[in-house]
Amino acid sequence: MTTAALVLEDGRIFRGESYGARGRSLGEVVFSTAMTGYQETLTDPSYHRQIVVQTAPQIGNTGWNDEDDESSRIWVSGYVVRDPARRPSNWRSVRSLDDELVRQGIVGVAGVDTRSLTRHLREQGAMRAGVFSGDALSDPERMRAEVLDGPEMVGSDLAREVTTAQPYVVPAVGERRFRVAALDLGIKSNTPRMMAARGIEVHVLPLSSTVDDLLAVEPDGVFLSNGPGDPATQDHAVALTRAVLERRVPLFGICFGNQVLGRAVGLETYKMRYGHRGINIPVIDTATGRVAITSQNHGFALRGEPGEEFGSDFGRGVLSHYCPNDDTIEGLRLLDVPAFSVQYHPEAAAGPHDAAPLFDEFVTMMGEGR
């Protein structure tokens, strides 16, 4: 057995055994409360430069397949679990989670008291950390010094590191009804797939795209995707969003895209203590009072009060959704131009699906735009 350790910037150390690749890896340590969908979590670009702690005790039971990836690779910088499966048991599995972590060079640690670790992060907040195993293990102060030399998440421009290098098109299923330009801030594969199922041809564009690039698609609507990092770094995406709003092209944003839209209309964003990560997080629509159980992954949020109305260069808006756990803002809607966004994931791989009708709302908005 090869020993391993998770070292936090505040000096706390959680020891266990090596899981996945051996070596060292630095990032922001966060916890996810999802009880399933670890493959989708690991391949979600929104987790770039984060060490993910799974609160569910048993991980790896269904192995790894080649159909459920949400991007071309694993993006987490480290992985922490309590009780990894000895062997996978699922008819779709083609290899074990451990084998895939080794194949992609993801350093992990198993056998950790993840309940104690999660309680610590809830009290102290997400923070810089490092996973060390094998020859990378050294004295505690040296490992902590490496952690403290790592970058903080505040001020990190990570979307440009995960965006697509070249534009690509996901064709509509059946007859094409609409064409959407999707700005890739860290898009997940299931997002264009769910739009395509609604007759939308999706043109996925790099973050570096100009407004002319976007308009060249002749879109019926514009989509702002999820993604990693600090939204305060996204001056280009914010300027592009403002250009879309000025032209009154229907716009829909999710997760990181919600924060970009918020900043485009003059709202502030802030770093949360430990964020929302999981597939079991409630959200309330302030207009209807309806509750949705949602998939989320964000460490930043829009500042404001649930139901609060605000003015902007584009007219009136309202903070339309919130999380009842802590009153975090979970969405906004502009009232004088066709634009709305939510902080959660309507594509929700691996679930739940309460928010999927938001894609239908986007379709309706584009239809009205015509």
Rank of each mutant, 00 (worst) to 15 (best):
T210A: 11
N280Y: 10
E175Q: 12
R277S: 15
D285M: 07
R176A: 15
N226Q: 14
V204M: 07
L240R: 02
S208T: 15
V283P: 00
P219E: 07
A239L: 13
L205I: 10
A216Q: 09
A243N: 09
L224A: 06
Y274C: 13
F252A: 08
N280E: 15
L245Y: 00
L267Q: 08
G227L: 04
G227M: 05
E268W: 07
R176P: 08
D184W: 00
E175N: 06
N190T: 14
P228Y: 10
G275T: 03
T241W: 00
G174F: 06
G199V: 12
P171K: 10
V265F: 01
A182D: 01
R273T: 14
G266A: 08
P250V: 06
P192Y: 05
Y270M: 12
R248Q: 15
A292F: 13
G266S: 08
R248L: 05
E175K: 05
V238H: 04
A196V: 06
V222K: 05
T288I: 05
L245N: 00
L205K: 06
G275N: 05
M272P: 06
G174S: 10
S209F: 11
G253T: 02
T269F: 06
G186E: 03
V238I: 13
A239Y: 05
L240F: 03
T210C: 13
R290C: 05
V283G: 02
D213V: 02
R263G: 00
G199I: 09
V249G: 01
V202M: 14
L214P: 07
V244K: 02
G257K: 05
L267P: 06
V222W: 08
H276V: 03
